[in-house]
């Protein structure tokens, strides 16, 4: 049982990070912290993909006579795309935070709600 859990440690790390990130997004009122949480959340999925493609004992997937076992490159390539998407999301999110700060003067969610309620 314990062995089974340990064998899949990569999944456990991914799940833990995912929960940490998700919790931060939901529970933190500061918009920047929300973005950070979102990043952690996304990163956990990147790790899930990357570890998925790793084949024990396999090398980088470069064709060579000496090697017969390769890691699966596709998840890695996929996740490169996802990382780019993640960076774009973060950039856009932060840009929005800046604009929110400019027009509201705060980036705390509860204060924002209060101000929106008044207007």
């Amino acid at each position: 049982m314990l062995q089974e859990i340990l064998d899949h440690y990569n999944y456990w790390i991914a799940i833990m990070l995912m929960m940490v990130g998700f919790y931060t997004v939901v529970a933190r009122g500061n918009l920047v912290k929300k973005i950070v949480g979102l990043n952690i959340f996304q990163t956990s999925v990147f790790l899930l993909y990357i570890s998925m493609g790793k084949v024990t004992g396999g090398t980088a997937p470069i064709l060579d006579e000496r090697f017969t076992v390769y890691s699966n490159p596709i998840p890695h390539v996929l996740i490169l795309t996802a990382i780019v998407v993640g960076v774009a999301t973060t950039a856009l999110g932060l840009a929005l935070v800046v604009r929110i700060k400019e027009s509201y003067g705060t980036i705390e969610e509860d204060e924002l709600d209060l101000m929106d309620g008044e207007t």
Binding site: F22, V25, L31, K34, L38, F41, Q42, V45, L48, Y49, M52, I74, P75, A82, V85, T89, L92, G93, L96, V97, R99, I100, S103, Y104, L112, D116, T119
Partner: peptide, 29 residues
């Protein structure tokens, strides 16, 4: 200015949705 908070809210929710989708596709793969 409410457009900004609306967009931010959508960004958070939308990203979570898309990431969920990504996890699902990863598991399928």
């Amino acid at each position: 200015r409410k457009s900004l908070t609306a967009a931010f809210q959508y960004l958070i929710m939308g990203t979570i949705g898309a990431t969920f989708f990504l996890i699902g596709v990863g598991l399928l793969y």
